[in-house]
Design a protein around this nucleic acid. Structure first.
Lengths: 337, 337
DNA sequence: AAAGGTCTTGTAATCGAATACATCATGTGT
DNA sequence: ACACATGATGTATTCGATTACAAGACCTTT
């Protein structure tokens, strides 16, 4: 066990070949002779050689890693998406690294530092990053937007049909006889939140149901804002009999608070969420929600990224994945007259 | 706007100085003259130069990034820890990258590829990684174990006193008059789970309460295993009146399932969790739990890592952070005679 | 005025692997 | 037997920055 870290030339010396041959033996085994290959591999084993990634990255001008920028890792929504991406990328020999773009102590301009010498690709899940940090140019690695997107930024998008998902939720409630349907909004600046709110309005209008601005309560996807939404709902004179929440987290906060204040779900208010995070199948009542195919979103994002990085032809500019209503216990027929 | 990516020598040419001077101007501004500095910065702006990290990493033999290996990003437990780490590391000029070590499509041996040429430090939250991939040697970056740890692996640890936390939970239940206290276990292989179970046994014994093996139900921290635990609990003839769950996720699964089967919490069974994830303050009943100082854990891990990477003297080998009981609504005085 | 110091800058080596090009041995076709 | 293709390997350059060392300019001290 030597005290220095072996380099390719140490392997070459031990194997009695040139460094070029060692390099070839390791990266394109089929171009060297079988004998040489065996000798080199033995020498690698003997020296304990491992490649120096910095050197390889410099020479090849690529890093074999893809960075995912996610807003708020605290949201369990992302975990399965990341797993789906990881599966595809690992398969293709790439590493997946995750960076949180939100919260105290986090640099908003992190994307600026993620140039080609750092990552071969960038998959962005945060629609609020400064576009100028991501504008494609020769320094920036290829970019894919997933879930959220940034207007005016030309990049392939992987997303679901948020408006349609919201429509499913509203249609489900309407079918149960609800005519007074409210919506707990996501953050104003968020494109998804806006699409969902639009979907709600469209579906309500299409069914001739009232679209009352005061029934669109402010929120920001968080548990805490779900709780605030519940208080707002309780404070109303003229309450909706059903609430569609733009995220499961808000739905949990909402349900928890209304129950604590003595209301029953779904008897006093039906609640629909959005995302289908693992948790919502386990709370009581189990949450009716709109399922996003999270694993598939991750897979699709990774595949588009791969084709962006390696293929010559352009990937699909916009991939829209299907959503689905999952009926559970938090919704029931409208009891009001 | 040229079509090539500018290099340091392009800046040097524009500024009319040598590449060495440009390099110094950018990394140690105080050693170059004020005039030169201004010229160089102007040239940088003009060319749009940004550094090539691969080249710098190769030359300096470091990457300025720290990788965190977490088991299962789906667990919201980690988010605030990561944020705490990120805050400290960003401050010190390091990047934090997160890699998930679990789930389908994930490479168990990921740690093997994370050598010095990839990361300057490794913070591991997964006690089940193969130790041989982490054994410190000249190739491996400095290592810190946080939350979990691996026996026989010499590395500084940041952790909480799990046994004491479990003790707090049991003591709380005992104080409420419970004499039949069960424990929903974490995964058998997990060191934390074992410590917590030991803490339960110790505290029960110390108080002269029964330690019945059939009241230690199997679990694995997951929501689903909480649900299974509930079914096991329901199936018992001779049920505990209180259950301490080794994770909040299990406590949620447990409470959801017993409620669904017609039991009330805390009237029919008191429940204590462990972790204090954000969610548990919002469900009904709000969960009584053991709080882990997650932000501080992250901060402490990052600080120890920094001293490992930069200082000459050794950091504390074992940092134990305090835990605390948070009393909410899921526990109440024992109703049984 | 010579000696020595400080400040600033340039020259050239270096980090470790990949690869363009050259070289040489062997095999194939006529 | 000659021309030429093929395969395997070596030599030397390259990726883009940092930095040891050298050197020049200028100032201070004796």
């Amino acid at each position: 066990m030597e005290r220095f870290t072996p380099r390719i030339r140490d392997v070459a010396r031990v194997a009695g070949v040139s460094t070029a041959t060692v390099s070839r033996a390791l990266s394109k085994p089929d171009v060297v002779s079988a004998d040489t290959l065996k000798t080199v591999l033995a020498a690698v084993a003997e020296t304990g050689y491992t490649i120096n990634h910095a050197a390889r990255n410099l020479r090849q001008q690529r890093t074999m890693s893809v960075v995912a920028l996610v807003p708020n890792l605290a949201n369990p929504f992302f975990s399965r998406i990341l797993a789906g991406m990881s599966a595809v990328l690992t398969q293709a020999g790439y590493n997946l690294l995750v960076v949180d773009t939100e919260g105290p102590g986090v640099d908003r301009h992190i994307a600026r530092t993620l140039d080609r010498s750092r990552a071969d690709g960038l998959i962005v899940f945060d629609g609020l990053l400064p576009p100028e940090d991501l504008q494609p140019d020769r320094l920036r690695p290829p970019l894919v937007m997933a879930c959220e997107w940034i207007e005016d930024l030309a990049a392939p998008r992987i997303r679901i049909d948020n408006a349609a998902g919201a429509g499913l939720a509203v249609a489900h409630l309407a079918r149960l006889g609800h005519r007074r349907i409210g919506h707990l909004l996501g953050p104003e600046a968020n494109v998804l939140a806006r699409s969902r709110a639009d979907g709600v309005r469209q579906e309500l209008a299409a069914r001739g149901l009232p679209v009352r601005p005061e029934w669109f309560l402010p929120g920001d996807y968080s548990l805490e804002s779900g709780r605030r939404g519940a208080r707002d709902w309780i404070a109303m004179d003229d309450r909706p009999t059903a609430m569609f929440c733009a995220s499961d987290q808000m739905a949990c906060g909402f349900i928890g608070e209304v129950q604590r204040r003595g209301f029953r779900v779904p008897q006093d208010v039906s609640v629909v969420g959005f995302d289908n995070i693992d948790l919502v199948d386990h709370i009581t009542p189990a949450l009716t929600t709109i399922r996003q195919p999270r694993w598939s979103i991750g897979e699709a994002a990774a595949k588009v990224m791969l084709s962006l990085m390696t293929d010559t032809d352009a990937p699909p500019p916009d991939t829209v994945l299907p959503v689905e209503l999952i009926e559970r216990e938090s919704t029931s027929a409208c009891a009001a007259i």
